[in-house]
Write a protein that binds this DNA or RNA. Structure first.
Lengths: 101, 101
DNA sequence: CGCATCGGTAAGTCGTAGCTTTCGTTCGTG
DNA sequence: CACGAACGAAAGCTACGACTTACCGATGCG
């Protein structure tokens, strides 16, 4: 639903991803560690879930969130494509400087 | 100077990166293809440059921008780390379901 | 030299994303 | 069954970022 890159663009959401990379956590657990309120964390998790970067699991009254490998892999692959194309362009600049002295 | 993830968070900047992935382009060239004005493109390029995602090269009156491999690799590696940690967490959930029946 | 092209900077406007507070709902527990 | 814990949803406020127009410096060309 959400573009994915915009999800990681926000500092608070990136911080959440960092915490979830260590281990899965509940909403309140994240809110305790971050300088924002718990509803704010919920809103961010909603965006991250919409982008397919996290998945949630209900355990009693708590909701445990964890990173989603598929969503992260999609962004990583796209970034990897950019990186490869950037290398190709870097080859060009070397070739040009030799051809146009 | 800029966090890097916020740079790719904006749709216009992501579009610029997409174009630069095809081939290096000048500022006006990008502005013609995008639905925003040329100064807006300049501002976005400034952010991307601050994040180390692009490098510029003056050719006459024109300024040609191209993707920077190092900046992109940094983000890709960090995303790859997230992905690997996500896979580890996925292993845990399988183990738990077997241990707590 | 003027003149045009190309691009960065400054100033100002406007929308929206992020946050908070409040409320409603679900689930576990005594 | 009543109470508390945990979370999501709604409403409202505010600050910031993305855009625009206008201006100015630098380079190339006749």
């Amino acid at each position: 639903m959400h573009p994915g890159w915009e999800a990681l663009g926000d500092p608070s959401r990136l911080a959440i991803v960092h915490r979830l990379a260590e281990r899965p956590r509940a909403v309140g657990e994240l809110a305790d560690e971050l300088p924002i309120s718990r509803p704010a964390v919920s809103q961010h998790l909603k965006v991250l879930k919409g982008a397919g970067l996290v998945v949630d699991q209900a355990i009693g009254t708590r909701r445990v969130y964890r990173l989603s490998p598929v969503g992260l892999a999609a962004l990583r692959d796209q970034l990897d494509t950019f990186w490869r194309r950037a290398l190709d362009g870097y080859q060009d600049i070397v070739g040009e400087t030799e051809e146009i002295p």
